[in-house]
Design a protein around this nucleic acid. Structure first.
Lengths: 350, 350
DNA sequence: TGCTCGGGTTATAACGTTATAAATTGCCTA
DNA sequence: TAGGCAATTTATAACGTTATAACCCGAGCA
């Protein structure tokens, strides 16, 4: 706030233009403050860390001086010395980036991380390499202090690896591993259960569901919720085969259209993603069917998109931004230690 | 590839469990390789840098050893020593995250950065602080070697600041500053020009356009292209006031619906974003109007969304992923120096 | 007087890397 | 045979920070 020194950080490594005079003002370091206060560098470092072994009055004097010159610790030096990176890695599958899936999460994460010393680094996971590679790399080379990822599998290799390495992480989605670990999940069981109930209540007699790929845990949650509901009600049902929530929209549309053209077509659809819901809508539209009259649809909504889509459809909301916030928050707690893992788990209600 | 040592990086700074024996295998450093080859640390460092002053045979020997033990340089140490961070900061406005605007860009950027030593760090810019703050912070504390950002303004403070500081950057969108600087932009002039022409060709006689907020450069490009077309053709036109492409979808819908209910309603709409296009569609639908019969709509398409939206509308595609690729590519060139700035500019065609 | 005690401060070393200057070697020339 | 040169290699120092152990000094005690 004081002394808004406009220019700084100039001549980072440019040819030594002249002798390195103190210059207008260089980037302030501990040494700067040490000279300013007449104390030793060590003392300054400890004073800034509010070490109670340093006299209270000294601490205040140092902190005032630091604020004066706008001191900010050098992350590289801290990292080299302490081994802590102050980085949190978000391992993102390009698949997830479709239609802002990852983005709302990112927004939640950055919001939580604001005010902490942590930076969020996007570590892309390219689909031509095993899922665990980026995670291994991060741990092995200590590229971060903690890891966030999603698309969790029942027996997830990454979880197993990270647990064994004792490396802090939070994943989106649960596993079926015996060892408890931090996670944030959405109650996909209730999602499909409620979705099916809604459809049945509105008169549907043959439900059709599109599930995520089988390898993901939430495939099973969704399937289970769906099956429970249809069994309870005793209605007909179908589980899409050949397409998943990860399929391209065109593929989903064609598949659904083909099915609708055959005998005994489903009259109620459950879509766990916005893309596939749009595809179902376009398929029905193209066949001259009308949503709400000929068929019904319940979709999971993760953005404001469906507020503008016509005809209106039934949706159940998943707050990914909140999930991101939570994941980052739990990871911070996990890294701080002290909290038992059992309390670092959350299932977001529908 | 050889020696896939499963465990590593354990006990980073945990209490000194025992004397620090060489251990199973610690994280390899230059020293490790030096001992392995019997050379000095300096020599190893230079050999890995392929310094021609080191004997060719030595270089090969060292590089082989490095590969053997899976050596990877410590980023913190490099950064501390050289001042280079190997980080590229993407300054993202939360606004941009809506519906994956930022995400496709991120995908393009990470793809380009793959194989380079650079990491992409998301630096959120919260709207309660001036746009230039995160940029200042990054430069002042050398948090990155280069900056990417968008939502460029004609007399953009960030561009001015970065130019003056000599700090590498690429922005999405142009300025009207005299000094040339790297940028990637989309030809929004042609977008609106062509959009207007299409609408007129299909019979529209009163065009309605929703523009971005006035402070952004592309507001003016879009306005200009639009105005040129309507003047050339001599049709009626309206420019939305009170709402922009940044407005919430509900606000856009209400505004459009209100306008359509009045006298002399527009019969052709141009939307520079997917959200606003959806809002226009829902507004017309709610009034019982039919797209393609009563009104027409041309939208900018940045995802596959409109392939599934019914009724089908006319769209013009903007490849944000390609923009991200390009931005990262240009930034790499800019940081390497050597390329004249005049060649670090690109306008993507529609 | 010598001794410990403890609050407060400081010197030293180290994290892993690289720029700079210096050293070593063999070999060729004067 | 000393001097010099080129080709390699190496020692030293430094980047900014912090953990560790040491230091200083006055007070209290025997």
């Amino acid at each position: 706030m004081p002394l808004d020194d406009a220019e700084d950080g100039r001549q980072p490594n440019t040819a030594g233009s002249s002798t390195s005079t103190p210059g207008p003002h260089r980037k302030p370091t501990l040494k700067t403050i040490a000279e300013l206060t007449g104390l030793a560098v060590t003392t300054v470092s400890r004073a800034l860390g509010d070490d109670p072994l340093i006299a209270r009055e000294t601490r205040q004097r140092v902190q005032a001086a630091a604020a004066q010159v706008g001191y900010l610790p050098d992350r590289a030096a801290q990292r080299l010395r302490t081994g802590r990176t102050n980085v949190i890695s978000l391992v993102l599958d390009p698949h997830e980036e479709i239609l802002g899936y990852g983005t709302s999460m990112i927004r939640g994460m950055t919001a939580t991380l604001r005010g902490t010393p942590y930076h969020l680094v996007i570590t892309p996971h390219f689909s031509d390499t095993p899922q665990i590679d980026p995670v291994r790399h991060i741990v092995r080379n200590r590229m971060a202090d903690g890891i966030l990822f999603s698309r969790t599998e029942p027996s997830d290799e990454r979880v197993k690896f990270l647990l064994e390495a004792g490396f802090p992480f939070v994943c989106h989605g649960r596993t079926e591993l015996a060892t408890p670990h931090p996670y944030v999940d959405y109650d996909n069981y209730r999602f499909t259960y409620q979705a099916a109930k809604k459809l049945i209540a509105s008169g549907c007699r043959r439900l059709f569901i599109i599930l995520p790929p089988e390898r993901f845990t939430f495939h099973h949650h969704m399937r289970h919720g769906f099956m429970t509901a249809v069994r309870e009600e005793g209605v007909g049902f179908e589980i899409a085969s050949g397409i998943t929530l990860d399929s391209k929209a065109d593929a989903v549309r064609d598949h659904v259209a083909a099915r609708l053209a055959k005998a005994d077509p489903p009259d109620g659809f459950i879509c766990g993603g916005e893309v596939s819901a749009m595809a179902v809508m376009s398929a029905t539209h193209d066949l001259g069917l009308e949503i709400g009259r000929d068929v019904s649809l319940v979709a999971k909504q993760t953005s404001g998109l469906f507020d503008q889509v016509r005809p209106r459809i039934e949706t159940i909301y998943e707050d990914l931004s909140e999930a991101g916030r939570l994941m980052a928050g739990l990871l911070l707690k996990r890294m701080a230690g002290a909290t038992p893992v059992g309390e670092l788990q959350a299932v977001l209600e529908v």
